[in-house]
């Protein structure tokens, strides 16, 4: 199809998050706020009104003291491919093509100026990855000074979500063009803000289809799984955990069913 410009290299960016490493410190969240001009209000405790592109959840294994275990699970937008390539749950429902599956990168785009705020995509997203701008964004005092020109501040009434820091990809690409090596972008040249911020190196980011990238190997690990994989959303974000209960907590199972990981463990 005409989807990919002739001069563009095709990639499929994705993330692998090692849940055994994640400490739940929220550096990724804060780095994301700062990187992506995410607005805040004085009241942020009602999480379903709060804008987060990546959010760290706390999972417990449900066992009583002292056999309790905790696992932290950072959840960005999963950049789903959907049932067939590009048929992401949110993309197919957007009536105005404000969100689209970016074929050259495998990232789900979101164009705030096209979005008119119908929120159908939010209804379609099982991960609650999409957030609506219920209020006009306001930065108190002269905090507007720290806003980055790489990411447009959103206006009231539109949906926003994690973009895998697409502007960093653009930045890397611009640099590559400037240096006369178009489309040749090294693995370390494009990393998301959260990946870079994670103080315990729990997040790995790269081209899932490129055997030279770290994520390629990690996503094929036997400890790898994805969130709500059974919905056929086909996320580009993988998780790693050696703990069986974490695998179970990441998807829904009927009583007699088991995650593939547990079956493997028992075998």
């Amino acid at each position: 199809m005409e989807k990919i410009p002739s001069h563009t290299k095709k990639r499929h960016f994705g993330m692998v998050i090692d849940l055994d490493k994640c400490t739940g410190c929220a550096s990724c969240m804060v780095a994301c706020y700062s990187e992506n001009n995410i607005s805040f209000r004085d009241e942020e405790s009602v999480k379903m009104l709060s804008t987060n592109w990546i959010q760290v959840f706390k999972l417990t294994n449900g066992k009583p003291f002292p056999d309790t275990e905790v696992c932290y699970l950072p959840k960005p937008c999963m950049q789903c491919d959907g049932k067939h390539f590009g048929h992401s749950p949110c993309v197919s429902v957007c009536p105005a093509v404000a969100t689209d599956f970016d074929y050259p990168t495998g990232i789900v785009s979101q164009i705030y100026t096209r979005c008119f705020g119908c929120r159908y995509c939010m209804a379609a997203c099982p991960y609650h990855a999409r957030k609506f701008n219920w209020w006009d964004p306001v930065w108190p005092a002269d905090m507007e000074k720290y806003l980055s020109p790489d990411v447009s501040p959103r206006m009231r009434g539109v949906v926003e979500k994690c973009t895998f820091c697409y502007h960093r990809f653009q930045r890397a690409r611009q640099q590559a063009y400037n240096e006369g090596r178009p489309e040749d972008i090294r693995e370390d040249e494009y990393q998301t803000a959260c990946t870079q911020a994670c103080p315990s190196n729990a997040i790995t980011f790269g081209d899932l289809d490129n055997p030279d990238h770290a994520v390629y190997k990690l996503k094929n690990s036997r400890y790898a799984f994805r969130l709500l994989e059974r919905l056929n959303t086909n996320p580009s974000v993988y998780y790693l955990s050696t703990r069986e209960w974490v695998h179970r907590a990441a998807d829904n199972y009927l009583e007699h069913e088991q995650p593939a990981f547990s079956e493997e463990q028992q075998a």
Partner: peptide
């Protein structure tokens, strides 16, 4: 000391540079 790692307070300290608490 930190070799690339930084805590959330470090990341958000720009909010104190420009913040209304000054």
């Amino acid at each position: 000391i930190n070799r690339g790692s930084l805590c959330p307070l470090g990341y958000s300290s720009i909010q104190y540079l420009y913040g209304p608490s000054r």
